[in-house]
Amino acid sequence: MSVRRQAGVVLANTGLEVKRLYSDRDDRVLFADLCFQLDAGQLVQIAGPNGSGKTSLLRILAGLSSRYEGEVLWQGKSLLKQRHEYLQQLLYIGHGAGIKAVLSPLENLRWSCALRGLNNNDDKILSALEKVGLSGFEEQACHSLSAGQQRRVNLARLFCIPASLWVLDEPFTAIDQRGVTEIERWLSEFVSEGGAVLLTTHHRLSFAHEFKIVTLGEAANV
């Protein structure tokens, strides 16, 4: 649980605000005039059919894509002006594998942690792997794990990298039913500790707190 406590320290004044966001792809408007707000202790689910621009939106909000017009504010200031501070608070898990298949979960997470300036924290990594149900698989090459287990390795980053904003693209893909319930519990714990979560999923969330759903693909509304 020490992971959680450390995550708690950096939680302060989380607030992501999207103002009049517009993006298109191949002359097709994905969303226009999109406005919503995500504060600390909240969860926002981005919903919408396939191809409605959910992933594009998350990539914009993670700062990976600049194909948009409008404003994205973080703690009241433009994202572009404080990228460094924003990235310190952000943990983005995209729909890609996020791990090297030839390396073991432990090696993958060591590297992920080192990128975030966290060195020599094998204890945390091992406890994170235990939490996602992968104890016993720490040293096994990831390509020999199942798709769901590989996804869990990627999700283990949630517990070894402190952040106050989680941006998750389809976190439930390939995860079994019990795992889904577990992830929902983790999200709810994180939110009740003051974290903010933005996620896309087609799954009907059963979530202890109230949460907002932003639907893309139709007349974008909140």
Partner: peptide, 22 residues
């Protein structure tokens, strides 16, 4: 190519540490 395909390149770009040494 490998890092691009398995999306670990995104992690490098989203690290708050400078990209140059990476």
């Amino acid at each position: 190519r490998g890092d691009f395909d398995d999306a670990t390149l995104e992690q490098m770009l989203l690290s708050h540490q400078p990209l140059y040494p990476q």
